[in-house]
């Protein structure tokens, strides 16, 4: 079972001119096994939602609640959230010089599971996960995200998703900067993940392109720090045809 409930979430960031509210009351429930897409123009607060749920220190939660299977996520540290079953695939994964992908993945898996993975099956699992994303065996010897191409970074994020196997995955603009072949490979990875019973996905994107490969159950239009409209997959088609203008006008 996995259920992520975001209720009236309000978030601000510090700026030179004082605190600025970015999320103005976001309410969203991802029920067991559902995939939700959040679409919105640049600057609407989509990424803030992703990072706030993951617990990035830059974002200050001023109100609301985020429950994962009934547990209050906002009271957990960043790593506790991950161990509770949340995963964030980042738009801009961070370089960690000198730390190999292999060491990083093993350390993360050990932390998530509370015990070291069995060496023999683990190496096989890692090689399979990397191979499935068209990352060759030498990839695991490289430093985390250092010198990776944009596509390699995104594929590495999805390899982590499959290996760490969370309950709910938030994918922040995973499609951005990918060519069509890489987009297919990444989408296949996400589909393998959500093909398992009970996995939740929150897919944040600016474009409808990725939704051709990953069919959402629900689509939300995100404008000015809140959900402006919700619907089924057909809402994405409408956005594709008409853009965000009507929502932006309404938000003014």
């Amino acid at each position: 079972m996995s259920k992520l409930e975001i209720k009236d979430l309000q978030v601000q960031v510090a700026t030179e001119d004082g605190p600025k509210q970015i999320l103005k009351g976001v309410t969203l429930t991802i029920a067991d096994g559902e995939t939700h897409a959040i679409m919105g123009p640049n600057g609407s607060g989509k990424s803030t939602l992703a990072y706030s749920v993951a617990g990035h220190p830059k974002y200050e939660v001023t109100g609301g609640s985020v429950l994962l299977d009934g547990e209050e996520v906002l009271e957990m540290s960043v790593d506790e959230r991950a161990r509770a079953g949340l995963f964030l695939a980042m738009q801009y994964p961070v370089e960690v010089p000198g730390v190999s992908v292999a060491n990083f993945l093993r350390t993360a898996k050990t932390a998530i599971d509370g015990e070291a993975p069995k060496l023999r099956t683990w190496v096989k699992d890692v090689n399979k996960a990397l191979g499935d994303l068209n990352l060759d065996a030498t990839f695991s010897h490289r430093s985390v995200n250092e010198g990776f191409s944009g596509g390699e970074k995104k594929r590495h994020e999805i390899a982590q998703l499959e290996l760490l196997d969370p309950k709910v995955a938030i994918l922040d603009e995973t499609d951005s900067g990918l060519d069509i072949d890489a987009l297919k490979v990444v989408s296949e990875g996400v589909n393998r993940f959500r093909g398992q019973p009970g996995k939740g996905v929150l897919l944040i994107t600016h474009y409808t392109r990725i939704l051709r490969y990953i069919q959402p159950d629900h689509v939300h239009v995100f404008v000015d720090g809140r959900v402006a409209e919700s619907g089924g997959a057909e809402l994405a088609d409408e956005l594709e045809a008409n853009g965000y203008d009507k929502y932006l006008v309404a938000a003014r």
Binding site: D79, A108, I112
Partner: peptide, 14 residues
């Protein structure tokens, strides 16, 4: 902070 956040978001303690 960004490096630490990235690692911690994968369950690794501070």
């Amino acid at each position: 902070d960004e490096q630490l956040f990235y690692l911690r978001s994968r369950g690794i303690s501070e």
